[in-house]
Amino acid sequence: MDIAQNILLTIMTAATPLLIAAIGELVVERSGVLNLGVEGMMVIGAVCGFAATLLSGSPWIGMLAAIAAGAFFSLLFGVLTLSLAANQVATGLSLTLLGLGLSGMIGESFVGSAGIKLANLDIPVLGDIPLVGRLIFGQDPIFYISLILTGGVAWFLFRTRAGLTLRAIGDNHASAHALGINVLKIRYLAVMFGGACAGLAGAHLSLVYTPQWVENMTAGRGWIALALVVFASWRPWRVLGGAYLFGAVSIGQLHAQALGFGIPSQFLSALPYVATIVVLVIISRDRRLTLMNTPASLGQPFVPDR
């Protein structure tokens, strides 16, 4: 029983940073902007979160710093692609390069320092319920935030007027502009939300997952988050499903190896990617629905005529 709980906890820890970063990027892409800089913003969040935690002594301050740093860093992308209408793909890639280099520089003096872990929730009675106690009541705060974020974004996008506006901009920015909507302002907000989420995902890595700072510690998770958004056809609950599926298969394959089934480890290592793509492609096979969910003006720069 304890083992099952431990395995599930490990899966949730592995899935949480992917989910948060992907949910942020989903909002960005729904507004019609493609920001390939997730990996860079995430690693900036990780280093700033870690540094602020050590300097202030509080992982909560670290977490807030990571969110702020991610949002601020994404603003750079915003200015270049929104105000200056630069190419989004190129700018996003540069953001990743810059983030990886810059984080190494910021973090240089923090390498090897013992981190402070963002403590798990500890509710006396509820946390002791067998099987599910720790899963529901005993996790780290960022895990709960990730679920609230997913629900919140789903509600915002499909149940509020502001969400409708954001999706309208993503589908056709010219029409939205003609209706008097301030396209650039909303896109700025979306980009910064995406940056804040990526920063928080990074903080999860350096404050919860492995409470330490090492260069390149995101190890490609930003790219996985990006892929999740596309394969989940820009739908929040599917992103959640995809992130958890990826986490489950990643952890499951490690267990399969430790059990000594004798399946080639190279194949097992590739399995999380294969499984996630196959499943998400299968559930997104309705072309009409997928087309409806794809932001039609994704990646196109918008220059308002005055």
Partner: peptide, 23 residues
């Protein structure tokens, strides 16, 4: 033995450690 197919991925190495300990 658990192969992580990477020289350096703190998160994945930690996951492998957890899987081994759970077993």
């Amino acid at each position: 033995v658990v192969w992580v197919n990477s020289w350096f991925d703190a998160g994945k190495e930690a996951d492998a450690a957890k899987a081994l300990i759970d077993q």
